[in-house]
Design a protein around this nucleic acid. Structure first.
Lengths: 165, 165
DNA sequence: GTTATTGCAAATGATTTGCACAAGG
DNA sequence: CCTTGTGCAAATCATTTGCAATAAC
């Protein structure tokens, strides 16, 4: 976990008169241990594995806290559970592409989008605060060759399979 | 309701070996009577008012049908219930701006976005199928003057207040 | 010591589903 | 007729919450 994150969180907790607890520490550590997207339940499992006694409720409550502190972002991947993205600290303006074929999620950044976003909202009379783009797309590789070897390793970061009820 | 919609739906129903029922007729009619966004529950109320005997389950089932038939789109407005948007037939590439101040939803179209979307996905090796942008923004008018007189009548279409738990 | 935090289990609330009956084609 | 559709109520399932016990500061 980046030291910046802990500092920012400590600052947030101090400012709001909250408390730094062992459970919060464990959860935050787990959240930022990897750069992968996750759901609350997935996080709960991971936390449990590392630190047997932390309740599901506390995990949910800490997630809300992190979102409020702007250290974590909720994203909508089209399934029924909220997905959390820990990568907005490093890439504050990134967006997501969901591969329809393999359900992989690819993160991408593009400054043009932000520019456009600004012009557009200003024209409409708004001041943009946050913006999210989700692109659903088919894999070209899959269509041309046989299998979907969609790694695009250089730009890929948050991968996570879609879970359906 | 546009005649095109009924034709498209009849075609879809025929092709899939489904049946045209009174309930479906009532629901579809209600869905496309206005151009406003709605949730399943809101629709259920509206349908009930017009046609007393249609069950909640049938409303949900018909909504899925319409989405599958590509006549209706699910959109994510950040609250916990699915919002449905009946305006994608007229404006196939529109997107949504959510006013943080008054929670109003403004629809907008911008061809640049689509262009960008295409370039981007092609560069990443994908063929874009559908794309959704949600911009959350503050009302400038509100900041400058006092109240949020955000009608922007010309471009505004789907308005609907956010419902919070 | 106060006040915030936690764990538990129960509550919530949107959506889905099993089933027996009804109704399209 | 033969299937698909419907209503009902019960089931799901992620998330939230009330409360008594616990732990920060």
């Amino acid at each position: 976990m980046d030291e910046t994150i802990r500092e920012r969180l400590e600052e947030f907790i101090r400012r709001k008169g909250l408390r730094w607890t062992a459970q919060r520490d464990g959860i935050v550590r787990t959240v930022f241990a990897k750069d992968e997207h996750f759901t609350a339940e997935e996080l709960f499992d991971r936390v449990r594995r590392a630190d047997s006694d932390t309740s599901r409720a506390t995990v949910y409550r800490t997630l809300s806290l992190l979102v409020e502190a702007n250290l974590l972002r909720e994203i909508d991947l089209g399934n029924d559970q909220t997905t959390y993205d820990p990568n907005f600290i490093d890439k504050p303006a990134h967006n997501h592409l969901v591969c329809i074929d393999c359900s992989r999620v690819v993160e991408f950044e593009d400054s043009h989008i932000e520019l456009l976003n600004d012009c557009l909202t200003r024209r409409l009379g708004f001041k943009p605060l946050r913006q999210s783009i989700k692109i659903e797309a088919n894999c070209e590789q899959l269509r041309l060759k046989g299998r979907c070897p969609n790694l695009i390793a250089s730009r890929l970061t948050g991968k996570r399979l879609k879970k359906r009820r």
